[in-house]
């Protein structure tokens, strides 16, 4: 399947970009040029050089090292949130779509309530209520992404459960758990995969936005959004500071979106070219 997918140009580009960031994140785990927190004396705001490949920031810290650690953070949060939304959002979606009835109604209402506000605004309010910090940031961006997954999976599950073979399986007395496990879930993989990429990109963007507003992942972590907001002060004296974190962010988000588009096209050919 992957082979087929890679023939899709958008998916291919997205996959390459994503692999690149996955590589940098893994690389950062074992090697960075310097420690991301290390302050070099008399070397603030240096332009790229042999010693500092991407230059230094206003305190004299190596930008490349910070970007590398930053990729770990962004990617990590993206994948984590994608994962949690599968575990929570997709399970709830399947349950809701398969069983219907009261459970379904209540769940739909809850998700509606969560989605009544645009995602960033909701994430902001959650952070405002709980206070900042790594955990709370992840919590807030996760909360925001769960309904995205839920809705998609629920409608897929509804379609699936109304199919004849499921109805007859139920009539024959097969256990609900078995039906869900061996029929509903496998047939919902498409929307789940597509939505996971969407959740992932949303989470990355929202985390960066919170960081940019100074309410997200706190220092010392070199989160890209925070790096960008710090570079704002130097827009005149050192504009090179704002190029890399922004570009990385754009490319990473782009990669997840291209992958999600490609997945959808490939697995659901009706929508191709949309």
């Amino acid at each position: 399947m992957l082979k087929k997918l890679l023939k899709n140009r958008g998916f291919f580009i997205g996959f390459c970009l994503f692999s690149f960031f996955a590589f940098t994140a893994l690389l950062a785990a074992i090697w960075t040029p310097y420690s991301y927190q290390e302050v070099f004396e008399n070397s603030a705001l240096l332009k790229p050089s042999a010693q500092f490949w991407l230059g230094t920031d206003d305190l004299g810290r190596d930008i490349l090292s910070r970007l590398l650690i930053g990729s770990q953070l962004s990617l990590g949060i993206g994948i984590l949130v994608g994962g949690i939304s599968i575990v929570v959002g997709a399970s709830l979606g399947v349950i809701s779509g398969y069983f219907g009835g009261k459970v379904d109604q209540i769940l739909v209402q809850i998700m509606n309530a969560i989605q009544a506000l645009p995602s960033l605004l909701l994430a902001l309010f959650v952070v405002a209520i709980l206070g900042g910090g790594v955990l709370n940031t992840i919590l807030s961006v996760t909360l925001v992404s769960i309904p995205l997954m839920y809705r998609m999976v629920r409608s897929a599950a509804i379609v699936e459960s109304s199919k004849e073979y499921i109805v007859s399986a139920r009539a024959l007395g097969a256990s609900d758990f078995r039906i869900i496990k061996s029929h509903i879930f496998p047939n919902c993989t498409t929307p789940i995969l597509v939505q996971m990429a969407v959740c992932c990109s949303d989470a990355i963007l929202n985390t960066a936005a919170l960081g940019f507003l100074g309410l997200g992942i706190p220092a010392p972590y070199p989160e890209w959004g925070t790096m960008l907001s710090d570079s704002k002060t130097f827009i005149e004296t050192a504009p090179q500071l704002m190029t890399m974190p922004g570009l990385c962010l754009l490319l990473l988000i782009l990669s997840t979106q291209l992958m999600s588009d490609g997945l959808r096209d490939q697995l659901d050919p009706k929508l191709r070219g949309r």
Binding site: A209, G225, S229, L249, I253, Q257
Partner: peptide, 18 residues
């Protein structure tokens, strides 16, 4: 539209200001 969707608006704003 693909790039527009992926563009973090705060970075875009900084670029435009610059």
């Amino acid at each position: 539209s693909t790039i527009g969707f992926a563009m973090p608006i705060f970075w875009w704003a900084l670029l435009v200001i610059f």
